[in-house]
Design a protein around this nucleic acid. Sequence first.
DNA 1: ATGAAAGCGCTAACAC
DNA 2: GTGTTAGCGCTTTCAT
Lengths: 347, 347
Amino acid sequence: MTSSTTLIDIAREAGVSFKTVSRVINGDPKVKAETRERVESVVARLNYRPNVWARALASSRSHLLALIYDNPSPGYVGQVQVGAMTACQRAGFHLIVEEVNCQSPDIAQRIREIVSLRLDGVVLSPPACDCPAVLETLRKAKIPFVRIAPHEQLDLSPYIHMDDYKAAYEMTAYLLGAGHRDIAFIRGPSSHAQAEERYRGFLAAMEKLGGNLRRQWIETGGFTARSGMAAGERLLSTKPAPTAIFASNDDMAMGAMSAAFRRGMVPPRDLSIVGFDDAPIATSLWPQLTTVRQPVAKMADGATEMLIEHLNKPDGAKSRLVGFDIIKRDSVVRLANKRLNGKKRKS
Amino acid sequence: MTSSTTLIDIAREAGVSFKTVSRVINGDPKVKAETRERVESVVARLNYRPNVWARALASSRSHLLALIYDNPSPGYVGQVQVGAMTACQRAGFHLIVEEVNCQSPDIAQRIREIVSLRLDGVVLSPPACDCPAVLETLRKAKIPFVRIAPHEQLDLSPYIHMDDYKAAYEMTAYLLGAGHRDIAFIRGPSSHAQAEERYRGFLAAMEKLGGNLRRQWIETGGFTARSGMAAGERLLSTKPAPTAIFASNDDMAMGAMSAAFRRGMVPPRDLSIVGFDDAPIATSLWPQLTTVRQPVAKMADGATEMLIEHLNKPDGAKSRLVGFDIIKRDSVVRLANKRLNGKKRKS
DNA sequence: ATGAAAGCGCTAACAC
DNA sequence: GTGTTAGCGCTTTCAT
């Protein structure tokens, strides 16, 4: 019964034309308050819900958004999706998810297929948000879209991003504040723009706030635990060895921690370690990892919100910066404690 | 231009009535091959795509499915969603994701809202798939749905599940095959039906295949790394200590591994450890964890496929069992090696 | 095998 | 303020 109450049923029941009902449903202000109330009560009583498809067909506004992603780490996609969905829910939209493969030669075709759904807009998460074919196809189709943490062609669409530089700077400052001076850094792949930002932030803080920068304390990894372990091994065999390691993602931090364990060192007592991302692994480790929380869900939420705003007035904000958090857990000690525990170190 | 080619455009171009075009699009066999080809070539040339909304409105088949989840661990949701989406893609469907809160008093209302989208069907992932209010509302709305790994009211809908019992049995057999006899087990929360199955499978294998079952080698945790570490501590302080630990999920296995490290033991040399789930952490650990892969994505894919089949002929299979994999990594040694390495152990 | 007519349930002009 | 008249692009009868 509730399944197909229509505008017309409501109209009949309320004794008005079905157009008036339509007005009420859409919050048109030009309806007498009295009429509106009568209609609304009938709507409630009959548990009426507009037919989404009819509405979309007639108005070409579907209240449907797509989230397009590529090559997902399921953990990441999950967060993005939860964020995007939350924003949709707030605004009465719904979210369709579509996976694409940006490497595929058919990518443009695939995007066109999605566009043919005639959704109101598209949210692009990395790395799809930097795929030229995707961007071009979307632009041609004139469908509004926003991007999460894009690196390129920033003027193509509204986007949301986080200040990796500042986050790394602050994390480094935190380490320095805890008394560390000899801080090593494990860089990520240089192709990863955000990884570079993190490295720059680290360097800036070390220079400005008085850390000991040494060439042999800078290593590079591939964002994997394995590469982090290898980098850690190398760092821990330098003399003097650093008292802290800042890895530019959590997986590498995990690897560095393993390297420490293998040498019989016990973090954080013998070595402080921090990461970046607040990946699930950060809390699965022992000791739990101090890290930077990338507010992935919040970014997706914000991006989606921007998209929805953009739908209403296309000349809104073009970009948004989200905050981050330094999540302080157990993998860092104040250096003072360390001295007390009496184990190597010059002072 | 490509954005609004309609049936009528195609019809004009191909010199047939627009109804014939409709037939071609929908694969109606009663069209002369020659006509069909002509139409198809025009469709391809004009890059025509049916308007989803119009189709849905006219036929009440939207080719849209919803994935409903509650209280998601983003990693899990991500996998479920990827699986469901893959199945949709294969069948020309699209997937809408909706998060709900089964604890909320408004849950029925929320489900009704989703139902009002008039989707073709719904995929329910745990724990939403066991929420009575959700099931009841869906049933009343007469919308087809399938469930992933449900525990209750199994006759309410088609569902897909995995044999946790058998998986645990086989993992235990694997450990026994590697020469272990003294195998400890860390149980999960007893409220978790699948965790219980795993325990039963372990017990059965130990009894049947000749393991040494001891009361003090059975511990219980809460599926967290922390609880796994605590359980590990207790297990490793029994005398004699077990030579292997089977944790009923990966996080607890991780915890047990930490406990071993803390006691100066080096897995796998001094202790073999296996988990269950193949969570991301399994490969981030060192040594990498031997574990059971829950084919989450595959289950979601299978469930979605069942749903789509069910849409066509509602009297299909009512349940499906998916396989699992024992993922052999580095956290287990054959006990022979262990003896050689010469470190404690009786016999 | 193909076509004509009548909606699906709604919104978008316009009138009143 | 409210009602009327057309469609949106398709699927469904039912003819031919």
